[in-house]
Structure formats: structure tokens, C-alpha cells
């Protein structure tokens, strides 16, 4: 395999690191993330506490920040991957249906998607989460209920392009059923752009989960999450900078990493960047 350019290589490293943390959290975290050590509350980075060094310091309840960061990857990943996958699973079939099933389906899907996308996500999420209550599953449901529209829009416009391709026309001329045409001839040719949207949605979900946690509508308090940590640290911003810096950087780095990978996939799949002359 050829070596990756710098940006996607950086992105891949970050994502692999996040995944490793999520899988190995109990093994690598120096403390139990929910272990409170009130005597050691708001300890700065590198200070020593009961049973080890707090590399990134502690929060108001004396919980180890590094350990909470490491366990926080689990929320970030389950919500992000769950949200992106669920949105795609709803949005792509609807987009295909809009492109291939005639005018009524087309306008129904498009009008609904436009309506949803025209309302700010946070506003919709606030409503949904306050009705459903805070839990990881409800977070995923909330994302899927809104972000499917993005996938539907993209796969609809790809359908419009693909249904004019002669090989899709040839399927009709060959008496091949619509289901098989979509599954074998249309969907695989959409995967490239859809993958790109998927990585961008990953980044978006990580950001938005943090935002919701920050507003107290994300993950429940007993589950450490980056957004929740940001929210807790907000009040100590001028006295204990380390409460917010670490989760803030982690959110930023993960979001950027997803974007870098998405851009790279898009460039790789664009036939115009494959060769200079045909």
C-alpha cells in the first residue's frame, strides 16, 4: 500500500487512538473514572494523589480527568457511530425511493427533509431529548430522527445522476427488477459520496453530543463524556483551566480527524483526480 499523505495519516492515527482508548479503557485508565477523592479536588496536572499521579489533574469531585477522558471515548464513539449509521440506514433508502419511485414519493421525502434541515439541530434535539429523557440510546434516536435528511438529500441527488446512466437504463431494458437494479447497480455506485457524508456526520455527531451534554441533555451524569466534562468545568474556567482544556482539545482533534479522512476518501473516489489524462 502506498503511504498516506499527512492529513489522512494524522486523522487515522487520532481515530485509531480513540478506538483503542474506548476498547481498552479499564486497562489503561489509571483511576476508576467515578472514583471521588474530595481531598484532592481541583488538583492541577501532574499532581500526585491517592494511588498515583493525576497526569491531567482532577475535577471538583476529585475524579481523575485522564481516566474520565479515556472512558469518555466510549460515549463519543457509540453515539457518533450509532448516530451516523442510523441516519444513513434511514436516509439512504428514502433518498433512493425519492429518486426512483415517482413524483409523489419524491416530493414527500424532499419536503420533509427540507423542513427538518431548515430547523437548527440543537433546537430539535432539545425538544426530542427533553421528551425522551437523557440516555445514550435516546441520543442516537435523536440524531437519526434529524440527520437522516442529510443522507436522503445526498442519495436523492446521486439517484438523479445515476438513473440517467445507460447501465441503469440497460437494467430496465434487460427486464431486471427495480430492487435488484437499486441493490446491485445503483447503491454500490453511491458508496463513495455516502462514505464521505458518513465521516462528516461522525464529526458532526461528536460535536453535537458534546454540545447536548454541555446543555445537560446528553449522556447521563454517571457516564463520563467529553461534553459533560466541558459543562462541569465551565464554572472553574478562570481558576482550573485543565477541566475544560483536555476535553475541548479531544473534541476538536477527533472532529478534525474525521474531516481529514472524509476529504481524503472524497478525493480518492473522484475519478478526475485518478489520472491526469484519460
Amino acid at each position: 500500500m502506498r503511504s498516506l499523505p499527512a492529513k489522512p495519516a494524522f486523522g487515522t492515527c487520532i481515530i485509531l487512538l480513540v478506538i483503542a482508548c474506548a476498547l481498552l479503557a479499564p486497562l489503561i485508565a489509571p483511576f476508576d473514572p467515578n472514583d471521588q477523592d474530595i481531598l484532592n479536588s481541583l488538583a492541577p496536572p501532574f499532581s500526585t494523589g491517592d494511588g498515583g499521579r493525576h497526569w491531567l489533574g482532577t475535577d471538583r469531585l476529585g475524579q481523575d480527568i485522564l481516566s474520565r477522558m479515556i472512558f469518555g471515548t466510549r460515549v463519543a464513539l457509540t453515539v457518533a457511530f450509532g448516530a451516523a449509521a442510523a441516519s444513513a440506514a434511514i436516509g439512504v433508502p428514502l433518498g433512493l425511493a425519492a429518486g426512483f419511485l415517482g413524483r409523489a414519493v419524491e416530493s414527500a421525502v424532499l419536503v420533509l427533509a427540507d423542513m427538518i434541515l431548515s430547523i437548527p439541530f440543537i433546537l430539535l434535539a432539545l425538544v426530542i431529548m427533553s421528551v425522551l429523557g437523557a440516555s445514550l440510546l435516546n441520543l442516537v434516536i435523536c440524531f437519526a430522527a434529524v440527520r437522516w435528511a442529510q443522507f436522503a438529500r445526498v442519495s436523492y441527488s446521486l439517484s438523479l445522476e445515476l438513473r440517467e446512466k445507460d447501465y441503469v437504463m440497460a437494467c430496465r431494458a434487460g427486464g431486471i427488477s427495480l430492487g435488484r437494479t437499486l441493490l446491485v447497480h445503483v447503491l454500490p455506485n453511491m458508496l463513495g459520496p455516502i462514505t464521505v457524508i458518513l465521516t462528516l456526520e461522525l464529526a458532526y455527531a461528536i460535536l453535537m453530543e458534546s454540545g447536548l451534554s454541555f446543555l445537560g441533555l446528553g449522556a447521563p451524569p454517571e457516564i463520563p463524556s467529553w461534553g459533560g466534562m466541558l459543562q462541569e468545568g465551565r464554572d472553574e474556567l478562570d481558576t482550573a483551566w485543565w477541566l475544560t482544556t483536555s476535553p475541548g482539545l479531544a473534541i476538536m482533534a477527533t472532529a478534525i480527524a474525521c474531516n481529514f479522512i472524509g476529504d481524503w476518501i472524497r478525493d480518492r473516489l473522484d475519478p478526475r483526480t485518478q489520472g491526469v489524462l484519460r
Binding site: 446512466k165 445507460d166 447501465y167 431494458a173 434487460g174 427486464g175 446491485v184
Partner: peptide
């Protein structure tokens, strides 16, 4: 009936998946 009636398109680049 489509097995009896077939078509060849113009553009050899867009006619194959």
C-alpha cells in the same frame, strides 16, 4: 418480453456498471 427486445447505447463509458 424484454429478453426479445434489446438495446445498445451510444456511450460505451456510461453503459457499463
Amino acid at each position: 418480453l424484454r429478453r426479445d427486445i434489446q438495446i445498445v447505447f451510444q456511450d460505451p463509458y456510461s453503459s457499463l456498471n
